[in-house]
Computed example of a mutant assay.
Amino acid sequence: MSPGGLWALLVLLLARRGEGSCQSAGLCCPGRDLSCVTQGWRLDRSYGECFCDQACVSTLDCCHDYDVACPAVPCVVSEWSHWSGCAEPCRATVRVRQRTILQDAQNGARPCPALLENAGCAEYNDQERQCRQTLVPALITTGGYGNARKKREVLDSGDIAGYCVEFQLTSMTEGCQRSVGSHTRWMQYLREGHYVCVECQPPALGAGQTHCSGDGENATEDGHVSLQWQAVGNPRCRGLWKRVRRQDSCACPSVHSFLFI
């Protein structure tokens, strides 16, 4: 008989006689408990103090009958709840669902799985086909670029009247403050909570168009829907803002004046 077979036979005999076992001592303890101990054969085939607490599975000093006296009890969780929905309609954020523990894992069983799960909201909302416009990020650049536009006489498609939209910045990435190039230095003036003006003019406002892409014109609740923006020249500079109002002309300081692209 192989050494492994002999050991299995010895364990069986010891278990039947109840010598130095968790069963004979009436022990089966959760967690780590140094008082949950007796004398007997251990699973590593040595004799001495052996434990009947859950930690013995990791420390390898369990009594030989630990698995029989303290069988692993698997974790049981409930079904997933319904998705909570999106915190703000038409905002690229997250929706949440959760579940609860019906029976906790015991005696070295695998720990319970995650009880909270997140998923994106953009695709979730877009199933209703109500948010396609608001999910398009507004591309912006410094207002000084408008002078270059006029110099190139891009207004060759007729007298298209532009307009200005005022936004409040609600969140932005750290990448905006790391814009050190001469053409991206304007991004350093962006601050959460500040109000900015963004002008919609040709060619961003083409012939036959009524508004610039991403300006929130189709948002159903002005001031309550978070819209996305992206700075041109630095893909790491982006964030969210809320539309305040539309104006015929911009009245913000030059450092807070921008253009739709």
Rank of each mutant, 00 (worst) to 15 (best):
Q230M: 11
P89K: 01
G214T: 02
M172N: 05
V136C: 11
G208N: 06
A122V: 04
C197E: 03
G40Q: 11
A231E: 05
S35G: 02
C252F: 06
G48S: 01
C50L: 05
C176Y: 00
L43Y: 08
V76I: 04
S182N: 11
R238D: 11
C197M: 02
S35C: 06
A92I: 04
T220I: 05
G146N: 14
G40K: 08
N125E: 13
E192F: 13
D61A: 11
R99Q: 14
P71L: 08
Q201G: 11
S179K: 05
C90Q: 15
A69W: 05
A109P: 08
Q230V: 00
A119H: 09
F258K: 00
E19D: 13
Q130V: 00
I261K: 08
Q130N: 03
E117N: 02
E174G: 08
R185V: 12
R17T: 01
M172W: 03
C22Q: 00
Y163E: 00
T100R: 08
C197Y: 04
C29F: 00
P71S: 09
V225T: 07
G31A: 00
C112T: 02
T142V: 07
V196P: 05
P202A: 13
M172R: 06
P235F: 15
F258V: 06
E123T: 03
V94L: 07
R178A: 15
C200S: 10
L205C: 01
Y145L: 05
V165I: 14
L155V: 14
Q127D: 03
S84K: 04
L10V: 09
M172K: 03
G20H: 00
Q130A: 06
P71I: 04
Y124A: 03
C22L: 06
L43M: 06
R152W: 12
A114H: 01
I160D: 05
C212K: 02
V73P: 03
V76H: 03
E221W: 04
R42V: 10
T220M: 09
V225D: 01
R17F: 11
F51R: 09
R185W: 11
C252I: 11
Y145F: 13
R246Y: 05
V232G: 01
E79V: 07
Q133K: 15
R238V: 15
S171H: 10
Q230C: 07
Q230W: 08
G18W: 05
A72W: 02
E49D: 11
Y145S: 10
L10F: 14
C56N: 06
F258A: 04
G193E: 00
A8V: 09
H82E: 14
L34Y: 11
R185S: 14
C50Y: 11
V225R: 10
L116P: 01
G216F: 08
C90R: 09
G216A: 08
S24V: 04
T170A: 07
R246L: 05
R243E: 04
R110K: 13
Y163R: 01
D65W: 10
R42T: 10
R17M: 10
G181L: 07
G40E: 02
G214R: 02
E174D: 15
N125Y: 15
T134K: 06
R91K: 14
V73S: 14
Y189P: 04
L34I: 10
L259E: 10
M172P: 00
L116Q: 01
G233C: 05
P30I: 04
R110S: 13
C176E: 12
D44V: 12
L13F: 15
S58T: 13
C252N: 07
D67L: 06
V198K: 09
G108I: 07
S257G: 07
